[in-house]
Lab assay of single mutants.
Amino acid sequence: TGEEYIAVGDFTAQQVGDLTFKKGEILLAIEKKPDGWWIAKDAKGNEGLVPRTYLEPYS
């Protein structure tokens, strides 16, 4: 299990392996990579890379 984050903006996948999401979606951070791209999972179970700058902790 990971930590929940809320998307603060829309993001469209730029390449294969990225995860597209919309502002307000809750994402589960699976792995926090030091380069600023995290592996996350959305509510539908889709998994991919997301930019850290689009996420804020969800409580």
Rank of each mutant, 00 (worst) to 15 (best):
E25N: 07
G36E: 06
V50D: 02
K44P: 03
L28K: 09
Q14D: 08
P51M: 08
I39H: 09
G48H: 02
G17Y: 05
V8T: 12
E3V: 11
E47W: 11
A7W: 01
E25M: 08
L27Y: 02
L28I: 15
A7N: 01
E4G: 07
Q15A: 12
A7M: 02
K41M: 13
A43L: 11
G24M: 03
G24L: 03
F11L: 04
K23L: 07
I39Q: 07
D42C: 03
L19G: 01
N46F: 08
F11D: 00
E31G: 08
T12W: 11
E31D: 12
E3Y: 11
N46P: 01
E47H: 10
K22I: 08
F11N: 02
L49R: 15
G48Q: 01
A13G: 12
Y54A: 10
K22D: 04
F11R: 07
D10A: 07
G45Y: 02
E31C: 14
Q14N: 10
A43I: 10
S59Y: 13
W38Q: 01
P57K: 10
I30T: 06
T53G: 14
W38L: 08
P34N: 12
G17P: 03
W38T: 01
A43M: 14
E4H: 14
A29D: 01
I39Y: 13
W37S: 06
D18C: 14
K22V: 09
E3L: 11
T20S: 15
K32D: 03
E47R: 11
L55H: 00
K22P: 03
E56K: 10
W38G: 01
L55E: 03
G45T: 02
E25G: 04
F21H: 00
E47G: 05
L49E: 05
W38V: 06
F11A: 01
R52W: 11
P51Y: 11
I30R: 04
Q15R: 15
A13R: 08
A13W: 04
D18R: 11
G36Y: 05
W38F: 07
G24H: 05
V8M: 12
E56G: 04
G36C: 06
G45H: 04
G2Y: 15
A7H: 01
R52P: 13
P51F: 10
K32Q: 08
S59G: 12
G2C: 14
P57V: 08
F11P: 01
Y54T: 06
Q15P: 02
T12D: 11
Q14V: 12
T53V: 13
D42V: 02
S59Q: 14
A40R: 00
K44H: 13
G9V: 13
G45L: 03
G17I: 04
G36M: 05
D10G: 06
K41C: 09
I26W: 06
E56S: 08
A40F: 07
P57I: 08
W38Y: 06
G24Y: 05
K33R: 14
A29C: 15
I39K: 09
P57W: 07
K33V: 06
G48M: 02
V50R: 00
T12Q: 12
G36R: 02
N46I: 08
Q15S: 13
A29H: 02
E47Q: 14
L55N: 01
A40I: 07
Y5M: 06
T53W: 15
K41D: 01
D18S: 10
P34Q: 11
E31A: 11
D42H: 02
E56Y: 08
G2H: 14
V50Y: 00
W37K: 08
I6N: 02
Y5T: 01
L55F: 05
K44G: 09
K23Y: 07
G45S: 04
G9P: 02
L55T: 01
I26A: 03
I30P: 01
L49W: 12
G36P: 03
D35T: 06
A40Y: 03
I26H: 06
T20Y: 03
I39R: 10
Y58D: 05
A7L: 03
D42Y: 00
V8P: 01
G2I: 13
G48W: 03
G2L: 14
E4F: 15
D10T: 06
A13Q: 05
F21W: 01
E25H: 06
V50I: 05
R52H: 14
Q14L: 13
L55K: 00
T53M: 13
